[in-house]
Design a protein around this nucleic acid. Structure first.
Length: 425
DNA sequence: TCTGGGGTCCTAGGACCC
DNA sequence: TCTGGGGTCCTAGGACCC
């Protein structure tokens, strides 16, 4: 049996590349895309990176640079990005038998089942050329015997222009060179904290980490880091996950466009988030038994009084009914609400999932009838799935929307709404 | 004035049981 | 005065990812 070969295909500056697609006038201008609420920078075009715009920087800190360099600024348009992502992923799924969609802009491919006549490099070059030709989105391809090495290869392909967008680290010599030049902090699975601790032990590069004793690393850190050591040495520990695993947890949380100070407004927000979480839950075909509601003030204003609290509760019977879940959310909210603060964010989390038709019966709910609830919820979901702006919701969610998020620089829904489709004259 | 949202996995520690 | 040991389950919190 041959040893596995993984490819990681990653879209370059994905959100920024999407925004540029239908805006040829922005071909060489720097582009940045902002987080929800237009808070901080979550994507940068190559030109914006070259200007030194950092990932995650709050946008108000770079106002001057934006004006000076005529940086094009966009609010996140997730409907658009998700549609472009689906186009890229569908093509990849035609190219390889097993594909793991790892995030909105990257996928792992199993190259094992590929024709023996095609070398991994040729395959990578084919993808590197085809995806932009068919979708307009540029990609880089990293190839390696483990997912960690494929990730590392991809990053090398992106950062070093000599590689022409494709790097294969299956060969030991090439691999050794690449690892020696790769900082430990950049490795997949090594974050800020771990890299600091590793640096303190004199482990600076990926090669240093690969040469450590895995057992010792496990004792010092955890099994996660031990796996990374093996993966860097070409021993696969992380499998391809071809089908999306069932979610363990669903979160709906958001910062507000303007602060909330009164309980009625907060009740409307929390009801809204609970209903949205319930909708996602039904999309997963699950019922939840456990719910957490949290609220907090802004984190960054030191002169302001701070408060943050959350409460968890369990339903007697797992549910996917928006009415039951919003009711529970409001009950929990009332236990943590405090007057006198300017709240900036709230959230609803669902967990402890069960199949809709398998639950522990509740002694006090003998004549539970799911079919009525199911019918109502599916009507609501069908109406709300239409992308025409209309939506049905419960009165509890309120109709005031002063707190909804800011998206001042939103691009059109170019590919998903008839009225926004670009016309060529 | 203005700093995202949505996930996963692992570990430690407490409760509880025999 | 003496006050085990080992197992499971649950939860909170930390670290990481995109």
């Amino acid at each position: 049996m041959s040893s596995p070969v993984f490819a990681l295909v990653d879209c370059n500056n994905f959100y920024a590349s999407c925004e540029r697609l239908f805006r040829p006038d922005l071909a060489s201008r720097p582009i940045i895309v902002l987080s929800n609420n237009d808070g901080c920078v979550v994507a940068r075009s190559r030109e914006a990176k070259a200007l030194g715009i950092g990932m995650g920087i709050p946008v108000f800190k770079i106002r001057q640079q934006i004006a000076q360099h005529r940086i094009a600024v966009f609010s996140s348009n997730y409907t658009f990005y998700a549609d472009m992502s689906a186009r890229v992923m569908r093509i990849l799924e035609q190219c390889a038998p097993r594909v793991e969609i790892y995030s909105i802009d990257e996928a792992f491919l199993d190259l094992d089942g590929l024709s023996t006549r095609t070398s991994p490099e040729d395959f990578g070059r084919h993808i590197h050329q085809m995806i932009p030709a068919w979708t307009g989105i540029p990609v880089c391809v990293g190839i390696g015997p483990t997912k960690t090495l494929a990730k590392l290869a991809n990053h090398t392909a992106k950062t070093d222009p000599d590689n022409a967008g494709v790097v294969n680290l299956c060969g030991p010599t090439r691999r050794r060179d690449a690892l020696a030049r790769y900082p430990v902090a950049e490795i997949w699975g090594i974050g800020r904290r771990l890299s600091r601790q590793l640096n303190a032990l004199g482990i600076e590069t990926a090669l240093d980490l690969a040469n450590t004793n895995p057992g010792q690393i496990r004792n010092l850190f955890s099994i996660v880091v031990e796996r990374t050591v093996h993966e860097l040495n070409g021993i696969p520990c992380i499998d391809l996950e071809v089908s999306a695993p069932i979610k363990q947890q669903i979160i709906c949380s958001r910062s507000f466009g303007t602060r909330i100070t009164g309980l009625p407004a907060m009740r409307a927000v929390v009801a809204r988030y609970a209903a949205r979480a319930a909708e996602k839950l039904r999309g997963e075909r699950r019922c939840a038994r456990s719910m957490t509601v949290f609220i907090r003030t802004g984190l960054f204003n030191e002169r302001e009084a701070q408060y943050s609290n959350g409460a968890t509760g369990h339903l007697a019977v797992p549910s996917d009914d928006s009415r039951a879940l919003t009711q529970q959310a409001l009950t929990l909210l009332d236990t943590i609400w405090r007057d006198g603060f300017r709240y900036a964010k709230a959230g609803v989390m669902l967990s402890d999932f069960h199949h809709p038709d398998q639950w522990q019966a509740d002694l006090f709910e003998i004549n539970r009838n799911r079919s009525h609830s199911e019918a109502l919820m599916s009507v609501i979901d069908r109406i709300n799935q239409k992308d025409d702006g209309s939506r049905v919701f419960f009165a509890r969610e309120g109709i005031g929307n002063g707190w909804t998020m800011r998206r001042d620089r939103l691009s059109p829904a170019y590919t998903t709404r008839w009225s926004d489709i670009p016309t060529v004259r």
